[in-house]
Design a protein around this nucleic acid. Structure first.
Lengths: 332, 332
DNA sequence: CTGAAAGCGCTAACAG
DNA sequence: CTGTTAGCGCTTTCAG
């Protein structure tokens, strides 16, 4: 493998000069530069980023701990993050935390060992007591994504409360009074905030939450299907449902269909999270869509400025969602 | 930041010993080991994987160049790869090639500079003349995934020909004779093989391919929608359609619906690639599902054994698909 | 069972 | 405008 030393020898200059032409870190005589470039060309030299990282103390690498790569929402998020990062000359290392502190800890440790310059994490339940402080202790810049945590660092997520509230309000406006809700995984802020939105909308209409109407779908398709099936099998079943994430929406849909019920005739449905093909489901889904690209790009922007030494107060950014009015809600 | 030297001093041993207890690379007196472990515990020492990689000449890192992170099929593939890799103590660096040689080259260069121990790539059209040889020239183990290339390295993909052939045959068995096909992005083997399967099925029934019935959807939803719309607007439109990838299926669905046509009454549809929610579309989609997890796990297995020095003939593995018989084909 | 020391390939003072 | 050189933190012979 050719090294900078080889290139230097061939070009008849010092490694310092080679380094500088490679990185553009100081002026070098055009003619000398030519020679160096020729030598690089000739040898097919490639810089060794590992050595560079060790010497410079920066890896130009960012770690991402995400909860479920298979969820299209997160996949899109990874895509957005990767894109912004690569535009800035960084590289992305991803790890899937499966939404458990155990796996999260493993991926975070691995990322930390790798000396990533910064870290983006979608914290799983309980990580503010374990992995998050650990990251902060190392001094590695950190930004939380999708969910928040009661910890001192930048955070970016969607405006969940408002979105869930609007979704629920729409159902109320349509006259529904017994509205079921499928709640996500316990312990993460996206779940609690979305639920808060639901509660707030009911409160706006002077309606108290009926515990019988809230089911825990654990942000999981199968669980949601089972729970919704139970809920919708009751004689006093709700006339409408709000599903609080995409995976659970699939479950709810399956449950309702399995029961031979029709949407929106037997039960109206609105959902948090949109699908690229939401239009093609029968019925077409009324949904609150997150602006994933903005969430991802914002997280990267915040992180990079921390990496560049920004020392301001941590920011908490909320990205607005979009209401897609289709017809699973019962409107035509 | 604490280094191995600090730990060594505190434990009263040499860095050599610390290194060996950390890596389990040679026997060390239990008592000495205790001291070292205590020192590590006390200092909160974390190994510096960058320095380790430089010294050892291995990064324990694998690069993946994928064509479209937002496509659920690829997202699942990334997930499968990440999982297998992390089980083996490796870390995954992902780059999105957007299915163009230009971007692919950028991500591959970056990965190579990073001295990844191996590389998994879903080659975009034309990469056998540019990025693939480049990778091979560096001696970095390489395995191709999802698509093949006429190049000497391990490759793993789905049994596309058989799958597309079965899909088309099903339509023929149902009596269809004018069968349209939506073909994917030109220049990648997954596209040509799937098309070959379509052609083969027709040939089995003594039917020649009618060029008027084949449209290029470029593996893209919008393009497919436009092309299918044109195709289905013809007076002599086909009575059935086979869509050769998931993104194009969405487009085809939109086009057909936009035209006010009904599936399967006005046109039958079968598709390559399944959706987790294929059941929920109206109509339910008859599809050939790829075994993504196996594809991913196999690619990783092949790669790791190359990294470990395996020198056999390159293998080309074809993973079987599953036929999901639902009702967009017209069966009940 | 343990240690000394020579790198791995590069960056960045510092010196000229 | 260019070069010398001391590390960056670790692995790994080689010697004991």
């Amino acid at each position: 493998m050719t090294t900078m030393g080889d290139v230097a020898r061939i070009a008849g200059v010092s490694v310092t000069t080679v380094s500088h032409v490679l990185n553009g870190t100081r002026r070098v005589n055009p003619e000398t530069r030519q020679r160096v470039e020729a030598a690089i060309e000739k040898t097919g030299y490639r810089r060794n980023v590992v050595a560079r990282a060790l010497a410079a103390g920066r890896t130009h690498t960012v770690g991402l701990s995400i909860s479920a790569l298979t969820n299209p929402y997160f996949a899109t998020l990874v895509h957005a993050v990767e894109r912004s990062l690569s535009d800035a000359g960084y590289v992305l290392i991803v790890g899937d935390s499966h939404d458990t502190v155990g796996s999260e800890r493993r991926v975070v440790d691995s990322l930390l060992d790798r000396k990533v310059d910064g870290m983006i994490v979608a914290p799983s339940a309980g990580s503010e007591h374990s992995t998050l402080p650990e990251i902060i202790a190392t001094g590695t810049p950190l930004v939380l994504i999708d969910r928040g945590a009661d910890i001192d660092c930048d955070q970016v997520a969607s405006e969940s409360v408002a979105a869930a509230r609007a979704l629920t309000a729409h159902l109320l406006d349509l006259g529904h009074r017994r509205i079921g809700v499928v709640r996500g995984l316990a312990g993460i802020t996206s779940t609690t905030e979305r639920f808060d939105g639901y509660v707030a909308a009911l409160a706006d209409h002077g309606i108290a939450v009926d515990a019988e109407l809230v089911v825990d779908g654990e942000s999981n398709t199968d669980v949601a299907e089972r729970e919704v099936r139970t809920l919708m099998s009751r004689p006093d079943r709700p006339s409408a449902l709000v599903s609080l994430n995409n995976a659970m929406t699939i479950g709810a849909l399956k449950a309702v269909r399995g029961l031979g019920l029709s949407i929106p005739d037997d039960v109206a449905l609105v959902c948090y999270d949109d699908f690229e093909w939401a239009d093609l489901f029968a019925p077409r889904l009324t949904a609150a869509a997150q602006d994933v690209d903005t969430v991802g790009a914002t997280a990267v922007k915040l992180l990079l400025s921390r990496i560049d030494g920004q020392q301001d107060e941590p920011q908490r950014i909320l990205v607005p969602t979009t209401f897609h009015h289709r017809n699973s809600c019962g409107c035509t």
